[in-house]
Amino acid sequence: MTNGITAYDKGEAPILKISGLDYYYGDFHALKSVSMDICRNSIVALIGPSGCGKSTLLKALDRMSDLIEGSRVSGEVLFNGENIFGAGVDITLLRKRIGMVFQHPNPFALSIADNIKFGPRVHGEKNRETLDSLVESSLRAVGLWDQLKDRLDKKATELQADEQQRLCIARLVAVEPEILLMDEPCSTLDPIATLSIEELMRELKKNYTIITVTHNMQQAARVSDYSGFMLMGELVEYSKTADIFSNPRDKRTDDYISGHYG
């Protein structure tokens, strides 16, 4: 591994093992041989300047990047030991198990309840009672149940931005994923809403593994267990968040963290 860091310190196999991942958009080499291990029930923050490849990396992990025309991938991502780029992989099942929260909250123009039921329905759940109980448990998991339980029929697009983002997380929780990918989930929220989402992330960590992309280094420092610093498609440094912020090994990481660029 380029920077010699692995995250095996819990003594168990990683839930994701990324090795030698290269990614191209047309001629643009967007990810350069990225290798990293992701531990179960941890929060990993990917930091780095705009265009460094952190969002690309995130999108590659649930193959949302397949949607981009002219993209190409090589390397390996083992999810519970199975290569997500393998021939027999069912993409819909992969995306059920690895969910994505987007930068801009994107609830569907449906009722709050139907937003939650969307995922389970897509995966074939028809039982009304099961669906209703999923609505409750998912909204409880993101701390929205008490405030929304009386207006589940209301259109989700009319909620406030942070409620929308929580709902989008609840929508994922309803399909019981193992990993949550979050692409700058707080960048469109105000500081108080941001703190509440961060609190939620720590809560969710008990049941899920979270990989988040952020521009905000304080956020990475506050919320994550491990951090990866990326620059021009390269994973420069990846280690425990406490270490990377207090004692970066690479000069480029040090420069970025101390605000020399980015």
Partner: peptide, 25 residues
């Protein structure tokens, strides 16, 4: 497009995304 992405990211097929998220919108 965020509707389509949101649906696909939940594991919907393209037809499911269209039928359940895009057409209602």
């Amino acid at each position: 497009d965020s509707y389509r992405e949101g649906a696909l990211a939940l594991g919907a097929t393209r037809w499911q995304a269209v039928k359940m998220a895009v057409v209602p919108a």
